[in-house]
Design a binder for these strands. Structure first.
Lengths: 164, 164
DNA sequence: GGGGTTTACCTGTCCAGACAAGTAAAGCGC
DNA sequence: GCGCTTTACTTGTCTGGACAGGTAAACCCC
């Protein structure tokens, strides 16, 4: 570190909830804040059932669609193939998932939920319902629809630009 | 892995963009997808200037507010103190930030942007403007306001629940 | 059927982020 | 002044996520 310095300015409480640095992109900044808050809520609730944020999406996809190829899991969840490899490894180690080699294509591995994981399903669905409820608060149905529409507009825009 | 298994069902193309697992929380799922897409765009652009997603927020806060205490940085950006420690360490190693011990309180370290970092400021602001543009697409001003309002509604709700 | 390409997966490495635990300094109460 | 609490910061360890690089199998085309 450098030399000791006085910190007159620095010690002043700078308790602004909207830093001027966000002026360049208020929506981008809001996405960042909302995403972290949302993830915090999900993680806090998932912790009770022994899952980490992101893993519950894999399990939901498996409960919902049954045994699937690992590459399809990654594609459906928009995840990186490498990330999916390690997430599945951890879920397997935790006993929630089983990996089976595909008989007709030796490259692929089929991921299937274990019987033990089924006990989690109801809890995870409750957690998601709880988070959805916290996220939307007491909004009216019309507001909820508008909220979802706004997010989907953003998603569409970001997807369009991603493929020039 | 388990025994080889046939994968008749699994090999079928399951190219749905809206997995039924999202039914429990469409808005939550959308937040997740939007956040990852948004982060991808930011990271892709920031890579050119040698920053990683999240670091640009620290730099913007420093450029904007001048030298600040590390704990204030963490609080303003809503980040974990431990995360801020390592982020600042990496920024210091990259030469964008300097750490100075506070003369009046030996616990605190003052973080200040280096002169070298100032050359990045314009570029980072352009990147954020670009991401904001991609995010909002060709929305009208009214739509943009509604989008921001929707995100802020979510943020408010998640903050309220966070403090029972 | 042989060779190049594509696909599926794995590993290494880096980053942010969260939690736990620890240290040192400041503040506070008595 | 002494002890307890709070604050600021650090480190360890776990996770998701991204990129690069590598391997083996399947595919495709001539």
């Amino acid at each position: 570190m450098g030399e000791p310095a006085d910190c007159d300015v620095a010690c002043a409480p700078a308790g602004l909830s909207m830093p001027a640095s966000a002026a360049a992109g208020p929506v981008s900044h809001a996405i960042f804040r909302v995403a972290r808050l949302h993830r915090m809520h999900v993680g806090q609730l998932l912790r009770r059932v022994g899952l980490h944020p992101g893993q519950e999406l894999v399990m939901m996809q498996l409960w919902d669609g049954g045994p699937q190829r690992q590459t399809d899991l990654a594609r459906l969840l928009g995840s990186d193939a490498a990330t999916m490899t390690r997430t599945v490894q951890r879920l397997e180690h935790a006993g929630f998932v089983r990996r089976m080699p595909c008989a007709t294509d030796k490259r692929v591995t089929i991921i299937e939920p274990t019987a033990a994981s089924l006990a989690l399903r109801r809890e995870v669905e409750n957690i998601w319902a709880e988070v959805e409820s916290r996220t939307l608060g007491d909004q009216s149905d019309a507001d909820r629809a508008e909220t979802l529409a706004a997010l989907e507009r953003i998603e569409t825009n970001l997807k369009i630009v991603a493929r020039p």
